[in-house]
Amino acid sequence: MTALLVANDGGHLAQLKSLAKRLPIADAFRWVTVPTPQSESLLAGEDVTWVKPGPTRDLKAALQNAMLASPLFRKGKISAVVSTGSSLAVSVLPQARLHGTPSYYIESATRTNGPSLSGRLLAKIPGVELYTQNASWASKKWKYAGSVFDGWEPQPLPEERKVSKVVVSLGTSRTYGFRRLLEHVAPILHDVGAEILWQTGTTDTTGLPVLEPRSAVPAQELSAAMREADLVIAHAGTGVALEALQAGKLPVLIPRRAEFAEHVDDHQEQIAGMLKHRGLAVVREADQVSLDDLVLAASSTVGLREDARPLAL
């Protein structure tokens, strides 16, 4: 038997990959996700069914991916389906329930105040088990299963670290840029003469001191660069925050804002606030970032305790 692990690319997939080793499931895994340089690198050697991109609130794409996933259930060998969202969960989990397959939806750790649109839709599907990664809004319907950020602890370094090698990552959104971050951060890094890997997504870098911007960087290359860097600066996405922690870095996170057309809503403020509360990020607005903030983050490290508990599904 095989369990399907279903997630959109980016932060949703990064969370599920990290949580997979804590799932109380003994069967083999098959992944269902979108092919990107990051996801192909992250899932190298895994059993994967590739589907089409699922932009936010794109009904046509959700229906297309439902059709692509349908043959997986006709074979009748799926023991369970687990998803961390977003639109792919809506494409796949209702089909799983029609076939009587146990289905588990784990809401993104980003959602600290309540479920996403995908979560609210799936809450209407009988038999889908619903889980939150934030105990503050757990309920009879939404059980608390634990969080992808459980077990991480910050530790200051003995001495202040110079900011000389930096990774700046704005995620891989195909729709939203984040020029405000670059406008304030790029001049600071230029003045200190730092060596920088710029992963800029769709953001326009025209006129900014941003050398060799790259829209996407394979996951293994990005992770290696983070491990070697003094500092990681990023939008407040769950995936990139988790990558930074796994590289031992305390990231500087800047939330995207809907009012500036940087995202569909302000959910990145939620993830930034949660990580700040846990002591796992330096959080600033785009126009408030200073060199002192960068030095503060660079002069700390982060580690994972070995006793992170299995998810309580």
Results as ranks from 00 to 15, higher is better:
residue 193 G to F: 03
residue 274 M to L: 11
residue 41 S to P: 07
residue 274 M to G: 06
residue 68 L to D: 15
residue 190 H to K: 14
residue 240 V to Q: 01
residue 233 I to L: 15
residue 289 V to E: 13
residue 159 E to D: 10
residue 151 G to K: 01
residue 12 H to Y: 07
residue 75 K to N: 13
residue 229 A to F: 09
residue 76 G to P: 11
residue 101 T to P: 09
residue 121 L to Q: 13
residue 199 Q to A: 12
residue 179 R to F: 06
residue 51 V to A: 00
residue 143 K to F: 04
residue 311 L to S: 05
residue 213 P to A: 12
residue 81 V to A: 09
residue 269 E to W: 12
residue 79 S to N: 08
residue 262 E to S: 10
residue 276 K to G: 10
residue 284 R to I: 05
residue 37 P to G: 04
residue 270 Q to Y: 08
residue 175 T to V: 15
residue 99 H to E: 05
residue 68 L to E: 14
residue 114 G to P: 01
residue 91 S to K: 06
residue 123 A to W: 09
residue 159 E to V: 13
residue 90 V to M: 07
residue 276 K to E: 15
residue 254 I to K: 03
residue 63 L to D: 11
residue 184 H to W: 15
residue 145 A to Y: 05
residue 117 L to H: 09
residue 209 P to L: 06
residue 211 L to G: 01
residue 52 K to C: 01
residue 84 T to E: 04
residue 201 G to A: 02
residue 33 T to F: 02
residue 226 M to H: 11
residue 43 L to Q: 12
residue 182 L to F: 09
residue 92 V to S: 11
residue 76 G to V: 04
residue 287 D to K: 14
residue 184 H to Q: 13
residue 140 K to A: 14
residue 285 E to H: 11
residue 107 E to S: 01
residue 106 I to F: 09
residue 217 V to G: 09
residue 301 T to R: 14
residue 217 V to S: 13
residue 122 L to G: 01
residue 235 H to N: 14
residue 168 V to T: 08
residue 181 L to Y: 07
residue 123 A to G: 14
residue 302 V to P: 00
residue 20 A to E: 10
residue 104 Y to K: 03
residue 58 D to M: 10
residue 19 L to N: 05
residue 155 Q to W: 01
residue 210 V to H: 08
residue 298 A to C: 08
residue 152 W to Q: 01
residue 19 L to I: 01
residue 198 W to K: 08
residue 183 E to A: 12
residue 249 K to G: 05
residue 131 Y to Q: 01
residue 280 L to Y: 01
residue 76 G to Y: 12
residue 269 E to H: 11
residue 225 A to K: 04
residue 263 H to T: 13
residue 184 H to Y: 15
residue 254 I to R: 06
residue 308 A to F: 04
residue 8 N to M: 05
residue 27 D to T: 02
residue 144 Y to T: 13
residue 249 K to Q: 09
